[in-house]
Amino acid sequence: MRSFDQFSDARVQHFFDQVYHDRGLMKWQGFYLSDHTAALKQVKAAEHQQLSIQPQQSVAKITQCLAVAYRQHLTVIVQLNQLTAATGTPLPAVKGIVQGYHADTVYIGAQPVALALIRYVQVV
């Protein structure tokens, strides 16, 4: 059995300076699982979708897209025609299945959205 006395400070310093080669961040890359990278990509795409202002669609196009999504039970992404007061960026897009409508309000998931506030609709 070896004694720890043979490892002097100078010998340890020589080992780390001359022999051991640190690979830097390469040794941490194995900790990023595919689920992590997929989640990070999804968050980045959602942020990009929220920050980019889509063109204003006509009322006819908006109602047509919502009607198709309602009949076929499809998911829609709706961008509202409102900006946040603090940053001036669009509010987060509303995503879900069109559940129904009443007068000038459409229900996407459980959230009511006034038709007058809709800027852009995308059927997914």
Rank of each mutant, 00 (worst) to 15 (best):
M1N: 10
S3Q: 08
F4A: 09
D5G: 08
F7R: 07
A10G: 12
Q13Y: 09
Q13C: 09
H14D: 09
F15G: 06
F15C: 04
V19W: 04
R23V: 15
R23L: 13
L25H: 05
M26W: 14
M26T: 13
M26D: 15
K27Q: 11
K27A: 11
K27R: 13
K27V: 12
W28Q: 12
Q29M: 14
G30S: 13
G30N: 12
F31I: 11
F31Y: 12
Y32L: 15
Y32N: 08
Y32E: 10
L33T: 15
S34T: 14
S34V: 12
D35G: 15
D35C: 11
H36A: 11
T37N: 11
T37I: 15
A38T: 13
A38W: 08
A38H: 13
L40Y: 14
L40S: 14
K41Y: 06
Q42W: 06
V43L: 15
V43S: 12
K44N: 10
K44Q: 12
A45C: 06
A45I: 03
A46T: 14
H48Q: 14
H48G: 05
Q49E: 15
Q49T: 13
Q49L: 15
Q49H: 10
S52A: 09
I53T: 11
I53A: 08
I53G: 02
S58A: 14
S58I: 12
A60C: 01
A60Y: 03
K61D: 11
K61T: 12
I62K: 04
I62S: 01
I62P: 00
T63F: 02
Q64H: 11
Q64S: 12
Q64K: 10
C65L: 15
C65H: 13
A67W: 02
A67I: 02
Y70F: 06
R71A: 06
Q72Y: 02
Q72F: 03
H73N: 05
H73Q: 08
L74D: 01
T75I: 11
V76C: 09
V76N: 07
I77R: 09
I77A: 09
V78S: 02
Q79E: 02
Q79A: 01
Q79M: 02
L80C: 04
N81D: 08
N81W: 00
Q82F: 00
Q82G: 00
T84K: 01
T84Y: 00
T84A: 03
A85T: 02
A85P: 01
A85W: 01
A86R: 02
T87E: 01
G88N: 04
T89Q: 05
T89E: 02
P90I: 01
P90F: 00
L91E: 09
V94N: 05
G96H: 09
I97F: 07
V98C: 06
V98P: 06
V98D: 04
Q99R: 13
Q99K: 09
G100W: 08
G100S: 07
G100Y: 05
A103L: 09
A103P: 03
D104Q: 14
T105Y: 04
T105I: 14
T105W: 03
T105N: 03
V106P: 05
I108E: 13
A110E: 12
Q111F: 07
P112I: 04
A114P: 00
L115G: 08
L115P: 07
L115E: 06
A116K: 11
L117M: 10
L117Q: 10
I118G: 02
I118V: 13
I118D: 02
I118S: 03
R119A: 07
V121W: 07
V121L: 08
Q122S: 10
Q122M: 05
Q122N: 07
V124L: 14
